[in-house]
């Protein structure tokens, strides 16, 4: 499913790029992210906890950023598996950044969300609504973060003071991979149904 959300932040584009490439800082704005830590220059691992009523899914997996299109476009990709329901969530977050004359930046985002396994069968309406809410929450938080308001303590539970990912060489390699639809090289072992 595709979830589109556009929002503006009171900051120049360069700052927005810096924010989006700072995985820990950006990850702090994603509701439910836990235990975000760096694996190597190109990859981070994290757990995303999503709760819908009595249903709880803990998606453990990888996050990586492709900055080769910066400052026009940033792409973040994540994929994780939940062992309880045997489901896999794949997200690709595309952010097109458009700077305005007044120094603010509009972020036009599109999140391509695919849930496979049992959760994928569970009321697609609920899954879509939940995903949409998460994107909205992220947008709101990102807007506050970048706009200069210091993050409140409750949001920084997963910051470990790690330097942002800037290795462009590695990222261009990533771009090659991401440009082919749905191809992944066995990074995540997926539980089967």
């Amino acid at each position: 499913m595709l979830i589109e959300e556009a929002f503006s932040v009171d900051a120049p584009r360069a700052e927005v790029v810096r924010f989006l490439l700072d995985v820990p800082r950006m990850g702090a704005c994603v509701p439910g992210v836990e235990d975000l830590h760096r694996v190597d220059d190109a990859r981070y691992e994290a757990t995303l906890v999503v709760r819908v009523g009595p249903i709880q899914a803990r998606f453990r997996g990888d996050v990586s950023i492709d900055a080769t299109g910066a400052p026009d476009t940033i792409v973040a990709s994540a994929s994780g598996r939940d062992s309880t329901t045997g489901s896999v969530a794949q997200v690709r977050f595309f952010a097109d950044l458009v700077e305005s004359e007044d120094g603010s930046t509009e972020i036009r985002s599109a999140s391509d969300v695919t849930i496979r396994g049992r959760l994928g069968q569970f009321g697609s309406g609920v899954v879509a609504s939940t995903a949409r809410e998460m994107v909205k929450t992220f947008a709101q938080c990102a807007g506050q973060e970048i706009g200069g308001v210091a993050p409140s303590a409750s949001r920084s539970s997963n910051t470990q003071g790690i330097a942002p990912v800037v290795a462009r060489g590695v990222l261009s390699w990533l771009r090659e991979i991401w440009s082919r639809i749905f191809r992944r090289r066995g990074q995540v072992r997926s539980r089967d149904e």
Binding site: P54, I55, T84, T85, G86, R118, L119, Q121, F122
Partner: peptide
């Protein structure tokens, strides 16, 4: 129903 669908345990 939710248990049988494997959504909760």
């Amino acid at each position: 129903l939710m248990m049988r669908q494997g959504l909760i345990a």
